[in-house]
Nucleic acid binder design. Structure first.
Lengths: 242, 242
DNA sequence: TATCTGTAAACTGTTGACAGTTTGGCCTGC
DNA sequence: GCAGGCCAAACTGTCAACAGTTTACAGATA
């Protein structure tokens, strides 16, 4: 059997283990948005009973990762174009706050590490050629470092927990414009500069501007895609470019 | 029996009903922070089995309203002073965003209604005498109107769903400073003025300044209280002034 | 051929019972 | 009188089974 999870002893309850597994599967994209979860099937493949599984599902439901329709079943939350835009607006405000706090609280060493990280990115071929990707993994690393540097636990949880998976999801859908990579790098540098100056206002502004660009950019991408479709334009797995 | 809930037909599942009940009880303060919930007792008094109750609890757990310790039980989430401060920081950023969006999206009629609401408050005796309260209920109404006017569903859900109960909780603990009521009213007027001008930047700034004051103020109140205690200063039900 | 209907299978919603852990009290010994 | 350990009751964690609903398929009819 390929799914039994009796590896970890139950220092934490079964529900915790199952919830973590599900979250990981959703974030990693292994469970695609809109995918239906069969309780029986999942319980069997995870090697647990339906009870704990249902409780784990309820928890993720409370975090808006899953969605249940009575008597029908549960699906991975599917986002409309409008949902995505709304969430990105929220992210803009929250990461702006995080950056402001980081300007005050982040240790010098971590800021220096951030700067070195950007130096590394600059040398990356794809950025130099202005064609590539600015590999999103590293983009996320950059943002997460700053969020973590804010020192606000609730904020960290919101941004890296609940919104994290969204960035992963639309990452597959947003194809970078040529020239964007270099611009992103410039904006990142502006942010780090503000952090080094320990200027919360400038840091917040730089981050929000950066994310506003990213949002506008994603909006264009998705709007163009949305025009071709009808209805509320659910952004599911229309294109998987892995 | 004083707790059977077979009034509503089950267009929604038992779990939904129970979760709503629990949330209401938490928000209203009927279940105080730190209070322990007995599964058996609750299930009996609600007239449901333990299964659905546990699932409802898990959902609220995902929303950070409840907290479970393995093999011990579940308690209403208790906030430390630091938690509260962090949450208020987040609220500052989010309501700032809400106000900025409201400046763009809120219908003229609703802004006018907001203005009338403030006129009503001004005539209130407690405000004129600068002694009273500026009755917090109405304060919340004001903020909720603006949040609702933002048109961002996710934002509305975050602010009026998950953070709502916090405002209720610390409301019981923060005693107003003399003179504060008049200041609050001034700040509210400044916000409405910015909304009328349809100036998103000014509106956001006004709201954030207003909330920053409120936060500083609450910080003082609680810091003074916290000094007397030891440890992480859990703010539970040290004083209930109902 | 297409549509409607009825039946059966599959799945979700709920319940009750069993196993393991914690907690509180009581007793014994120092 | 006090500390430590043992025992029992209560509670949480988990599971298997039952009831109700939805869905899909097959057959009949227009």
């Amino acid at each position: 059997m390929a799914g039994t999870l009796d590896t970890k002893v139950q220092a934490q309850s079964l529900v915790d283990v199952v919830a973590e597994r599900l979250e990981a599967a959703i974030i990693s994209g292994q469970l695609e948005p809109g995918a239906k979860l069969s309780e029986q099937g999942l319980a069997a493949s995870l090697g647990v009973s339906r009870g704990p599984l249902r409780e784990a599902i309820r928890r993720l439901e409370g975090r808006k990762l899953l969605e249940r329709t009575p008597n029908i079943g549960v699906r991975v939350k599917q986002l409309s174009l409008q949902d995505l835009n709304e969430i990105l607006q929220v992210r803009e405000a929250l990461e702006g706050l995080a950056c402001s706090l980081a300007a005050r609280n982040m240790p010098d060493a971590e800021i220096a590490a951030l700067k070195r990280m950007l130096d590394g990115h600059e040398k990356q071929k794809s950025v130099q050629e202005n064609t590539g990707y600015y590999h999103e993994e590293k983009n996320l690393d950059f943002h997460f470092s700053i969020v973590a540097g804010s020192g606000n636990a609730r904020l960290i949880q919101m941004l890296s927990g609940d919104l994290h998976y969204l960035l992963r999801v639309y990452r597959h859908k947003a194809r970078p414009k040529p020239g964007r990579a270099a611009q992103v790098l410039r904006e990142h540098r502006a942010i780090v500069t503000a952090l080094e100056r320990r200027d919360p206002v400038a840091a917040e502004q730089a981050m929000r501007e950066h994310l506003r660009h990213a949002r506008r950019y994603v909006e264009e991408q998705l709007a163009a895609e949305g025009e071709a479709e009808t209805g509320p334009a659910p952004m599911g797995r229309t294109r998987t470019l892995d």
